[in-house]
Structure formats: structure tokens, C-alpha cells
Amino acid sequence: MSDKPPPASTGSFALPDHGVISLTGRDAVGFAQAQTMNDVAGLTDGQWQWNGWLTPKGRVIALFAVLRLDAQSLWLIVPDADVRALAAGLQRFVFRSKVVIAARDDLYVSGRFGAPVAASGARLAGDVEHGVEMDFGGASGPRSVRIEGAPAPTDAESLARWRAFDLQHGLPRLEASQSERWTPQQLSLERLRAFSVKKGCYPGQEIVARTHFLGQAKRGLALLRAEQPLAPGDAVAHEGVELGNVISAADAIALAVLPLEHPQPLQVHGLSLQHEALQEGLAR
């Protein structure tokens, strides 16, 4: 990463629904490689990727970004999930690995609707002492993230806009009720390049690889818009027949898991839904 960390930017606001877990030690990369669904070993120092942790049955427990700071230091930037519970869950699999896993209450995540100062794509900028910057932009425009030791101001309007941007670009925001329910393919996570079918074993890998190589994925994400707020768990139907469920919502915008081939029109609670195309550009 850059020797000159980017300065704190005006217009930044707190992302209080994002937390940080650190993995440090000689086996940090190897441990993450064995436990998570993407190819952590393929990262170089100063790079990041989308990733996640699965149940043995291939269901997504949590989605997160993995940042490789150096050969012995990783950060997980985790939206929505309880980072203490997630860190404790990972800790159960450490065994003899030389890795320390910690939920980092001393680190804060903030966002900004603007181009990063120095980060670009999967390349980080800054350093642990002065703050780390990430490029979170997509087709709708630029965004940047900072992880540092001081919180940014709160801004409810910007926070809601940030969540809607995530959903419009196909990044599911999984609250507790949606954890351990969906496979990576059902969440269309290939769009984000968030999982690997080529690396070695990890929890759920057999299910993920079988679905991929046998072409058995029959459901995926759909971006929907309604005239009223939607909520995770809402049933999506066609002519009274339930087809799937909303899994993430931002007011009247939602992601639902539906059959890849589904009829139109769609309804929630009898009210019509507008189907929109997922936007590109958030893959790393």
C-alpha cells in the first residue's frame, strides 16, 4: 500500500452496520484460505476481494470484504453480521494454526460518495496507522470506504443511499434472518467474483463446486422496486403463486431470490413490483 495515507475526506459518514475482524499471525492467510469461499492466497499485499463464510451445506453465514494488508495481516470488513459472534465462530476452527482472530472495536468504517483519493479497484491505499482506503464504486458512480481509528459523523440519508447502491449492484445485505439460508449461486455471487470453484477445500466447497460444474443453479438474485417499503422475508408471487422471497431491502428497493426463469408480473402483498436490471462494476 501507499506510504502516504490518503487524508480524511469531507463528506464521509459512518457505516455503523459495518464491523472489522482482524486475522494476524504466521497462518492468517492459510487459515482464511481454508475457511472462506474465495481464493485469499491469490491476493497480494494491498489487495482486497469479496468473500464469505459458508456452512458445511454451502449456505452463506456472512458476506464480507477480505483485505490483505501484508503476509501476516488480514482484515474482514463485515456488513450487517455480529462481528463478535462471527469472530468467535471462526475461532472454533483455529486448532493449532498460528493466527489471532479479533473483533476490532477500535476500528471504524466510513463511506463517501466520491472517488477514492488513491485506492483503485481491488488495490488498497493508506496504512493501518493512518487509515486504509478502498474503492467501492460501481456503474452508478464512485464511492470510497475508509477504515480508521476514529468514527465519522452519522448521516441517515447517506446511509440509506449507500445500502440502496449495494442492492442495485447485486451486493446482498444479509440480516440475521437471512443468514445460513442461501448458497452463493442463489445470491448470484459470481457477479462479484466472491467465491472460487478452483481452490482447495473449504466448508461448503463440495456443494458450491457441484452446483457450478453440473449447472444446477436454478435460482438467483432479482432487483425489484415497489411503491411501498419492502422487508426481508416478504413473499414474491405471480398470480397468487409464491415464487421466492425478498432477502435484502432498502425502503422500496429489494433483492429477492427467484427462479432464473420466472413469469411476469410479480407482486408482494398483492401490490405490483417493477423488475430492474442489476448494475455492474462492484466486482473486485
Rank of each mutant, 00 (worst) to 15 (best):
R163L: 08
G141C: 12
G58S: 10
L258H: 06
R123C: 04
W50R: 13
K198T: 15
A103R: 02
A115C: 01
S97Y: 11
A209Q: 12
P203N: 04
R84I: 03
L266N: 02
M37S: 05
Q205K: 08
E206L: 10
S248Y: 05
A119C: 03
L282E: 09
L63C: 05
Q168A: 13
A118Q: 15
R284S: 03
G131F: 03
C201Q: 09
G220D: 02
Q178H: 06
R284G: 00
S140W: 01
D27M: 09
W162N: 04
P56G: 03
Q33V: 04
E227L: 03
F13S: 05
H262P: 07
G220V: 06
A194S: 14
G46E: 06
V60I: 13
V83A: 12
S196F: 05
H262A: 13
E129V: 13
M134K: 00
L86R: 05
V100P: 00
G270C: 10
A209D: 02
S2W: 01
A28P: 05
Y108L: 07
V29D: 01
G233Y: 08
D27R: 11
G215K: 04
T44R: 14
E206P: 08
R181M: 11
V100W: 00
A81D: 08
E190F: 09
G204K: 11
T24M: 09
G25T: 07
S12F: 01
Q91L: 08
Y108Q: 12
P184D: 10
K198F: 09
D3F: 11
P56K: 05
A28E: 04
E129W: 00
W182Y: 12
D27Q: 11
A235G: 02
H269M: 09
R68Q: 14
W48M: 07
A254R: 04
R181Y: 00
K98G: 01
V60E: 06
G46H: 06
L15Y: 04
G215F: 07
D17M: 09
